[in-house]
Design a protein around this nucleic acid. Structure first.
Lengths: 245, 245
DNA sequence: CGGTCCATTGATATTCGTCAACGGCAGTGG
DNA sequence: CCACTGCCGTTGACGAATATCAATGGACCG
């Protein structure tokens, strides 16, 4: 759910220089724990559009996203589908104690994962409070983000949904004062599946925000914004944000 | 988010006979840990309708729900509001490492909490892997439930939303084969705020489901159902459920 | 050059929200 | 005991937001 702009290299082998480590599940590991993780890890890659795990299918590894963007989704039998989470670099995949995935996991762009075999990873989790507590903190952050998304899905208008999505994305790539610019990691269809809308409505709202001068569109995948305040005003400000500036 | 029918007595003082312990954060504690928890715990009660914590306000305790039902909600500045979680007996309140609540917490019915002072509880969490790992498992369950609710909010019709809500409730109170019966822990307005609907739409869908013979309504707060299969068919079956019968 | 995929735009349909009136029930006070 | 009042839920009429259906446009690729 968290949107980050980290784009580390995939050539790292040891963990010492791993660019995602400051935010990943292994962030607070000591040397012994890093060695243990290093021993059970495997880098794997998927092409954009490939399915990493099907909904309800066995998942025999845990993993951290190293590069790229993956989606978590759930579906109804008749095919209606909802993306329930975005996985970006440093995000964690897998559920200790469970052998199958409740969600489909798909590569939105080319994706590299640092995978850990399930059994030894869970054993390590028992022994290493640093890994366990980091995973708890990450899970609670994820829970908060997911609940914020519930507010969006249940109560925001189409325009507010699109504005909120763009704002979250732009905030992650902000390096200084505007103008801000970012590449959309998702197609229109995926955005619609994430926001609980149809592809046509997403398209219309993007056009409308552009015509109103809130954002700029540079090609299909690039969004710019000169004034994040303005975009925020379009996104349906939340009480919690107002209280915590 | 989990719906349970546990209605334990509030007169328990020690933890030994605590009726929620099998499912609570203290489920796997050893005797020493129970003594430590016992030392920092306080039972507190709130009347139906009272606010336990305001959105964004300081929260100086963690807690387990002992009896009753509370809601977690988030709001937009203009007053639109979404319930993002139901807290039922054995559910946990609080976020280790954070001093304020991102959500409003309100008593839907009379509520009793077993509260733990924040600082000593967090200290205990560092020392007691049993508590930490139980909290992780509960958080991950909560995350799954919240994501399932995202699918409901983003993709289900009003009728399916109401049917899903009733089904979840009835399943928790099931003791054998039908007919099933349960009391709604929420008012029509709270149900609407949970399902991303208006109160009128909830009312219409309940009436419609009753007229179609899917459910029975006995007074305002009591729902019966002779055929959970039928109710399930109305609730928009999920792929994950189909795969895991 | 033609085909395919993705996005945009327009016309129309549908669902659900909004506004308004009403009814039942409980509590209150005469 | 009975009117009065307020709250909650139901029902109906209407309107607005978004989905659906359909046509078109543009980019990429063989």
């Amino acid at each position: 759910m968290k949107l980050q702009s980290i784009r580390p290299s995939t050539t790292v082998n040891g963990c010492t220089d791993c660019p995602i480590r400051p935010r990943a599940v292994c962030a607070h590991c000591n040397d012994a724990e890093l060695v243990a993780l290093d021993r059970i890890k495997h880098y794997k890659t998927w092409k954009a559009g490939e399915t990493i795990v099907h909904e309800g299918a066995p998942l025999d590894f845990a993993a951290s996203v190293v590069t790229g963007c993956a989606t978590l989704s759930r579906s109804l039998e008749d095919g209606r589908r909802q993306i329930v989470g975005l996985l970006l670099p440093s995000d964690f995949i897998g559920r200790p104690g469970r052998a199958r995935s409740e969600h489909a996991i798909e590569a939105a762009s080319d994706v590299t994962l640092c995978t850990f075999r399930r059994a030894p990873f869970e054993a390590l989790l028992q022994e290493s409070p640093r890994i366990a507590s980091r995973l708890l903190a990450m899970s609670l952050d994820e829970l908060d983000a997911t609940r914020e998304w519930m507010l969006l899905l249940g109560r925001k208008t189409a325009r507010e949904k699109v504005a909120t999505f763009l704002l979250a994305l732009l905030r992650r790539t902000a390096t200084g004062p505007g103008p801000y610019r970012t590449d959309l990691p998702l197609s229109r269809e995926e955005i619609a599946t994430f926001l609980g809308l149809t592809i046509e409505t997403v398209s219309r709202q993007l056009t409308s925000l552009r015509k109103d001068g809130v954002i700029g569109l540079d090609g299909l995948r690039t969004v710019t914004c000169a004034d994040l305040q303005r975009l925020g005003a379009e996104s349906g400000a939340e009480v919690a944000e107002a209280l915590l500036p």
